[in-house]
Nucleic acid binder design. Structure first.
Lengths: 241, 241
DNA sequence: TGTACATCAGTGAACGCGCGTTCACTGATGTAC
DNA sequence: TGTACATCAGTGAACGCGCGTTCACTGATGTAC
């Protein structure tokens, strides 16, 4: 029994081609819906209407509204992951960790700015009544993975972040999972500055996109660049200087 | 023509008392709805149902669903503002800016943890199709106001943050609005470290509450305390030591 | 290459439910004299 | 203190609309021989 729907290899039959195409069209239409009415109000019927098909037909492609939402989440995480990994990989001098870190940060920011509603889907309020299944975990990991890889290389290369406060013992114990994401494990200083940079990075983007800088900051791009540069310095990624 | 609904002074007539009480009950029921179905799906009919009244009766109190949502926003901002200002004011040594900053940060965190859905209403994804009217601006200002006041006192007291990178000219120009929130205006260093702390503060809370630390950090309270301590140090709020 | 059968995509009606908002109306509360 | 009128709260029906999901069905595509 071969299953047809993995989409990893090129489809052969006309049916498979049509299916792949319509699956895409449904996801695109759903994505457009996200912009106007948000994930909570995402509607199978509206998607079908936009595509000019019966609402029941959508159920040939996604078994439920929540499955459609999950597919949107997975796709958004994957797109962002691809953008981030691509930006990282585009830095030819692999040892220039400051450049890689900046590239990753700006890739996230650029993607978020271009797709604010999908950013909100990933990093904004959780959708009430919807629990993301395990399928979303792996794609969600890619962004943090890219960040952690850079921090880990910095540690291995002996780059020291601006010395943070010593970790409390509760904090040290509580960070066991992150510490073990890499081998050899993160030291305290990298961990502390790394987590702070992570918070500041997504905090800046969220505050910007969700409208909280509106009355205080005029030039979002300049501000973001400044934040990233500062984090680069605090993480000690600038060699020599 | 006296208007009855300002709610600033105690109501006199039985009608006014009943009105104030039902207004509260409606807001409370709406607030409870927020937890289960989120702001986008907030429903006048469901609120009325919970209170055992006709849905049309709610319109005697709030002219529309959006007005009800606005009232929830204003109330949430005000509650958070009160909590933050109260925490600040509870620090008896007004010159101990580190203690005041810590108190403010933990007040925000505590409130957000106790009321995650209302935090999400304020700092999560914007509600699609809803534009917050000007009524929400003033209450929204209280939290940032408390933070800015502390930073401003620190600057006046001559406390120096950990030296940030020099601001680019674009960034310097773009920060004109925040700079002028206080008099004398903020200097570059306080501004840079202050905005970074602001981002890290809300970034940490949002990442925690929206589920992104789930796989990496075990002890949220220890982590938040560590972040706040680090920000306190980076802001240079610790005198002597 | 041709036929017979199985699989699949898409339809349209239906079920049972929800929503925001308006409106004419009843009955209670408040106020002016 | 009592009466007459105005104001207001709350009702229930209605308008016009939306939703997710199921189901029996048709017609096209794919496959085994």
């Amino acid at each position: 029994m071969r299953h047809a729907g993995t989409m990893t290899s090129a489809p052969r039959t006309a049916r498979a081609i049509a299916r792949a195409e319509l699956t895409r069209a449904i996801l695109d239409a759903a994505s457009r819906q996200l912009v106007e009415i948000g994930p909570a109000a995402l509607s199978v019927r509206a998607v079908a209407r936009e595509l000019g098909m019966a609402s029941s037909a959508v159920y040939r492609y996604f078994p439920s509204r929540d499955a459609l939402l999950t597919a949107l989440l997975v796709e958004a995480y994957d797109e962002l992951g691809t953008a981030v990994e691509g930006a990282d990989a585009a830095v030819t001098d692999r040892g220039d960790l400051a450049a890689r870190w900046r590239a990753v940060c700006h890739a996230i920011h650029d993607w978020a700015r271009a797709q604010p509603h999908r950013y909100a889907l990933l990093y904004g309020s959780p959708v009430p009544g919807y629990a993301a299944p395990d399928d979303t975990v792996t794609p969600a990991t890619r962004v943090t993975g890219a960040i952690l890889a850079i921090l880990h290389e910095a540690q291995t290369a002996g780059l020291d972040p601006v010395p943070p406060l010593p970790l409390s013992s509760a904090e040290r114990a509580g960070l066991a999972p992150v510490r073990g994401f890499v081998d050899p494990p993160f030291d305290d200083d990298t961990l502390a500055r790394g987590l702070l940079a992570w918070s500041a990075l997504f905090g800046t983007i969220s505050l910007e996109l969700f409208g909280h800088m509106h009355r205080g900051v005029l030039d979002y791009d300049a501000h973001f660049a400044q934040v990233v540069d500062q984090l680069t310095a605090d993480l000690g990624l600038i060699t020599d200087g």
